[in-house]
Amino acid sequence: MELDQLKYPIGQFNCPEIITEDILNNWISEIQHFPEQIVAVTDGLSKEELHWKYRPYGWNIKQVVHHCADSHSNALIRFKLALTENNPTIKPYAEDVWAELIDGTDDDISYSLLILKGLHHKWHLLMVNMDEKDWEKTYFHPESNKSFTLKSVAGLYAWHCNHHLAHIKQALLHKNNF
């Protein structure tokens, strides 16, 4: 398997030009159900298995779980900023450095799973109560120097959920043979 396939097992996110109601509802559902899916795929993993990586020089399973809690916490906050401010500039963060902090390398993933459960509940509640005008609200990302609609961001994070679920499954499949 090529390194790019290992890095992007489901491919990179490509936002459709037209986001239909069905597409958006599917994304909302994927975000809603992510916590139960990540719990199912990590349930009962040993300490050794939590150290398995999905690709050479990639994160191990526990870092992926902790990263999802960090990333999705930021996503919820970015959603709320966009809903309450006019095209706010969001703050990027160094994901790779965060993944090396003690809470990103801790063998106990249960607290990150609890964070995901709670924040995805809040996020889902927010999304199912948004109207079309809300979905068109934006935030500005200084790293890409452009604004993103919340509608497109929902797609990005639905992809992000599936992307990291695939990473965990990949690590389990390869059993750290990288």
Rank of each mutant, 00 (worst) to 15 (best):
N129Q: 12
L50T: 10
S152R: 09
S110V: 02
I31F: 09
L81E: 13
L50C: 13
L24V: 02
N176W: 00
N129H: 15
D96G: 12
Q5R: 00
L126C: 15
D108I: 04
T138D: 00
H51M: 06
S110I: 03
E136T: 09
T149L: 05
E136F: 00
T20E: 04
I77F: 14
M127T: 02
Q12K: 12
A40G: 10
L101A: 01
V39A: 07
L50A: 11
I28D: 14
N176Y: 04
S152P: 00
A171Y: 04
L126W: 13
H120A: 06
K151A: 13
Y57E: 12
G58M: 03
A99V: 10
T42K: 07
K137I: 07
T149N: 07
V97C: 02
T20A: 05
H164N: 05
K122V: 14
V97Q: 14
E17S: 01
I77Q: 10
K47S: 08
S29G: 08
F148C: 00
W27L: 05
G44R: 06
K151S: 08
D70F: 15
W159V: 02
P16Q: 06
H163D: 01
S112H: 12
E85N: 14
N87C: 15
W98A: 04
E21W: 09
E143L: 07
D131S: 00
Y54M: 00
E17N: 07
T105I: 11
T42Y: 06
V65L: 00
E100F: 09
R78K: 14
E100I: 03
E49G: 04
L45Q: 09
W27P: 11
N86A: 07
P142R: 14
E95G: 09
